[in-house]
């Protein structure tokens, strides 16, 4: 089996489907036409660019370039985590909690997988390192963003309860335990659901891609299992870490609830 190369015409035909959908929404006055077309255009431009970047990276496989790419991906993911918070921490913490926990979890899991499980040579071989890191960062980012958002929202809403517990002599950790548990759950649920539904409800994207590219299904499945475990570990450790640090940061050294450390909520 070999990969069938797609021509410009093939892509144009697919694009016409999106244009047709946009036309339909305009006709039905649903106000989605513009967003659809802009998002479609962004897909083309962003993916073509990243294709070129990856091609260049593969052609000049040097550790420095791979590291630069990885750090850029992390920086953007850190920004995404921050941007998705309705009430985020003020100052550097708003960016730092997400970025640092993602660095620790997604980076560590990727490096561990590359050095001990996949084992390309050299271990940072961009063909393996970049897609792996991308999948891990993408999922970890979602988990951490969901977890942090849920934590700050519920703590804000339940501040009277938290202060009542503090006033009755509970420690900060006990006073915020329910909210922390809920936040960790909401960060991890998508990943757990994806594992549970894998192969039955949906064929995961990476596996599908490998099969399309001509890999034997059993090999593709093995990669998919590996990836799902890595994603679960990365997302899980990242979310638990982020939620823990954020919940600690919501209290000061005298265990007072410090909602003034959050920026005011956005009305969206």
């Amino acid at each position: 089996m070999e990969l069938i190369s797609l021509s410009a015409l093939d892509l144009t035909l697919a694009a016409l489907l999106v244009v047709a959908l946009a036309g339909l929404t305009v006709w039905a006055r649903m106000g989605l036409g513009r967003s659809l077309l802009i998002a479609g255009a962004r897909t083309v431009i962003q993916l073509l660019l990243i294709g070129l970047v990856l091609q260049t990276l593969f052609d000049h496989a040097q550790l420095g370039w791979v590291a630069l790419m990885a750090v850029t991906m992390l920086a953007v993911a850190g920004y995404e985590v921050m941007a998705r918070q309705q009430r985020r921490f003020a100052g550097l913490w708003g960016y730092g909690i997400g970025a640092v926990t993602m660095f620790v979890s997604a980076f560590a899991v990727t490096v561990l997988a590359l050095t001990t499980m996949v084992g390309p040579s050299p271990w940072w071989e961009p063909q393996y390192a970049i897609p792996l890191l991308g999948m891990l960062l993408g999922n970890t980012m979602t988990g951490i963003a969901l977890g942090l958002d849920r934590l700050t929202q519920t703590v804000w809403r339940e501040r009277r309860t938290i202060e009542a517990r503090l006033a009755l002599g509970s420690g900060w950790s006990e006073a915020v335990a329910t909210m922390r548990r809920e936040a960790a759950r909401s960060g991890l649920m998508p990943t757990i659901n994806a594992m549970a539904a894998a192969g039955i409800v949906s064929l995961p994207g990476m596996m599908t891609g490998q099969i399309l590219a001509g890999a034997p299904p059993v090999e593709a499945v093995k990669y998919q299992i590996l990836i799902m475990f890595l994603i679960t570990a990365g997302t899980g450790f990242g979310t638990l870490g982020a939620v823990w640090f954020a919940s600690r940061r919501l209290f000061d050294t005298r265990e007072r609830l410090r909602l003034d450390r959050l920026k005011p909520g956005r009305h969206t």
Binding site: R160, E163, L166, A167, L168, G169, R254, E255
Partner: peptide, 15 residues
Amino acid sequence: PVQWRRRVAYVPAET
């Protein structure tokens, strides 16, 4: 802080 708040207890208007 925990010891302090057990000894100096705050009771709000609405518990």
